[in-house]
């Protein structure tokens, strides 16, 4: 069994040194908790990752919440959540103060403008690959929903939350009721 302190330290370390979000941090967590320490079985870990992806929020935080819950119940979940959130919280707090001070520095401004260009490209590329991946399953359903949501989001003042709830319900009704009856 693992102690709360160990659980905290392990999760904190993973969160502090892993850059690049969910797709890089989840394999590291798996490596630590499944391979090295054998605290969680591989199958269980895959289930946890699947559940992590079914809730809103970042996959990295969600996975660590579930690891904590699996190992030590709700208290464990609180410990791992705190340990995961703490490193970025500290780092970004420091950066925020510098950001305000550096806003008038022309060199930093120039660097940030260049970075804005890069992030546009990164996001464009990400949207493209996400779209391609999504269209791999249920191609027509996904394509139609994608176009409808894009048009509604662009041309109407319907709130984002309403669009999200609406599309979730559409999936629930389409796949839960219609498809199951046909098959």
């Amino acid at each position: 069994m693992i102690s709360y302190t160990q659980l905290f330290l392990k999760t904190f370390k993973i969160s502090a040194v892993t850059f690049g979000g969910g797709y890089t941090i989840v394999p590291v967590m798996r490596d630590v908790f499944v391979s090295k320490d054998a605290l969680i079985l591989d199958d269980e870990m895959l289930n946890l990752i699947a559940i992590a992806q079914s809730a809103p929020g970042p996959i990295a935080v969600n996975t660590s919440i579930l690891i904590g819950y699996k190992l030590k119940g709700i208290k464990g979940a609180l410990v791992t959540t705190f340990a995961t959130v703490l490193p970025p919280l500290l780092i970004i707090t420091v950066i925020s103060f510098f950001y305000v001070q550096f806003q008038t520095n022309p060199i930093i401004q120039a660097a940030l403008l260049g970075m804005r260009g890069s992030i546009s490209a990164i996001m464009g590329y990400a949207v493209f690959s996400m779209g391609k991946n999504t269209l791999r399953n249920h191609r027509y359903f996904s394509a139609v929903l994608m176009i409808i949501i894009f048009l509604l989001g662009y041309f109407t003042p319907i709130p984002t939350i309403a669009l999200i709830i609406g599309s979730g319900l559409t999936g629930l009704i389409y796949f839960g009721m219609i498809k199951e009856k046909v098959l």
Binding site: S54, I119, S142, M146, F150, L163, G166, G168, T170, L172
Partner: peptide
């Protein structure tokens, strides 16, 4: 899982819209 099948394509479009805004402000 069924809810997520509906959410995934919608999320792509919503991110695309945000990406367009951010790209416009960047360029």
């Amino acid at each position: 899982q069924n809810i997520l099948k509906g959410l995934r394509p919608a999320i792509v479009s919503l991110i695309a819209l945000a990406a367009i805004s951010l790209t416009l402000i960047a360029l």
